[in-house]
Nucleic acid binder design. Structure first.
Lengths: 241, 241
DNA sequence: CGGCAATATTAGGCTATCCTAATATTATAC
DNA sequence: GTATAATATTAGGATAGCCTAATATTGCCG
């Protein structure tokens, strides 16, 4: 106890860079709470593929460092400090993804994996240079918004493709899953940020959704469609670069 | 003991990626032994800024993993496996340096620091893409040779500027120090790979060396000159790209 | 509102890596 | 060729993270 308190005091002063696991926890908590909401121990554990017990321990330490607000048995929330740290990591991650994709020709199904490792090692200077080199992108290759240097994020909400009615159309704004296989599949269907599409029909009882993309027509399942976010056709929401 | 043996057996099979500290040890040992020679515990410790006792421990583990040949009280040498691992890391490091310099405009005095962190996180694919993007460089921004994918390194030896006689001239092939201040200073003097220069005079008793670079003339100390390697003027040793 | 399921936490351990202090070995110098 | 200096190793301990098993808390359901 005495030691934990001392450590917290030291790190608070020292401002030493956060460790890799710590950044991962903060990112996970941010993702679960969408920036501000609470995150349950089990959810964090699942997202990080760790035992819940490990999370309890770490969460206490992060709270000691002032990164989390933590009440035993009641989950955690990011503090302002934690939120800023999470956004720094998120910015790194997404800038790196965008850079890998645009400057180095990485396919969109592999950028996540690579960025996951680089985000902890890249300096702010590097990230800024990357961003500058590709024209200060505002979204990553999956359409996720890139936080600005000072921690602002576009929080526009889009409609899941799964929720559109037959006859409606729009433009893909974002794909909210990093699974490589899924991304490759969507890529084959040309479903990626910027693609215009319209709903032809929706089979009942959670059945597949049939849609038109360019001249092609095909059906996809609901769960897949839930990961594809759509901006209304006339909306300026389709942000490239 | 039994446990150590078991761990070694497992990691030997598993072929899991080496940890960051392990890669750093191998790189240091490679650098000290110039690829094949022996490295003393204290030298390794100094280079990595660790206590010698820590090195003793780690070195034993690396030997258990078959990366080093180790005889107590007599230093270590890389095994073939260790050498290959060291060269992989070295290639990463130097490709990254070259990429940062050429693709992202990093000044040569800062590439080392950044590469030091990225080399452990970058995948082989990324490194290969970087290399391809800047035209498969064969030296890094300091003129150090980049090992090939299959572990070959150019081992050409150059003459330290400090050893040239008055009247001789040549082209800077390499600067063998990563100290940022030193690099900035050399940069101001235009002393960098590719620069042609000639020795005007050498003051006696380890005194300064006066040289001509383009139209400029100035003197530098012996210890600095020892870090500047020169290729004979007509030699093809000045490798750019 | 008592009891069980779901959820979370503590207890006790393990590994990798580092450190300091104590000790051992080698090398050097006279 | 032995004493001392230099070098290296072992002993003992710390820390961050992770794990499993045991235990505690919460919350919901009948």
């Amino acid at each position: 106890m005495a030691r934990a308190a001392k450590t917290a005091a030291v790190t608070a002063k020292t401002k030493q860079p956060l460790t890799e696991p710590v950044e991962d926890y903060l990112k996970a908590i941010y993702a679960i709470g969408k920036g501000s909401g609470p995150a349950a121990t089990n959810e964090i554990a699942e997202r990080l593929a760790l035992a819940p017990a490990s999370v309890s321990g770490m969460v206490r330490r992060l709270a000691d460092q002032g990164l989390l607000a933590y009440e035993r048995y009641h989950g955690v929330k990011l503090t302002e400090k934690g939120r800023r740290a999470a956004l720094r990591t998120l910015r790194r991650h997404r800038v790196i993804e965008a850079y890998l994709s645009r400057a180095l020709g990485y396919p969109w199904d592999r950028v996540h994996h690579e960025a996951e490792r680089l985000e902890h090692a890249a300096s702010d200077e590097l990230v800024d240079r990357m961003a500058a080199a590709i024209g200060e992108p505002i979204v990553d290759p999956h359409g996720a918004p890139i936080p600005t240097r000072d921690g602002a994020v576009d929080e526009t909400e889009y409609t899941p493709l799964a929720d559109l009615a037959a006859g409606e159309s729009g433009v893909v704004a974002r794909v909210t899953d990093e699974d490589a296989e899924m991304l490759r599949y969507l890529g084959e269907l040309s479903i990626r940020p910027g693609t215009r599409l319209s709903i032809k029909s929706r089979a009942p009882f959670d059945g597949p959704i049939t849609l038109t993309v360019g001249k092609k027509e095909f059906s996809i399942g609901r769960s897949l469609a839930a990961h594809v976010l759509i901006a209304p056709a006339r909306d300026r929401g389709v942000r490239r670069r």
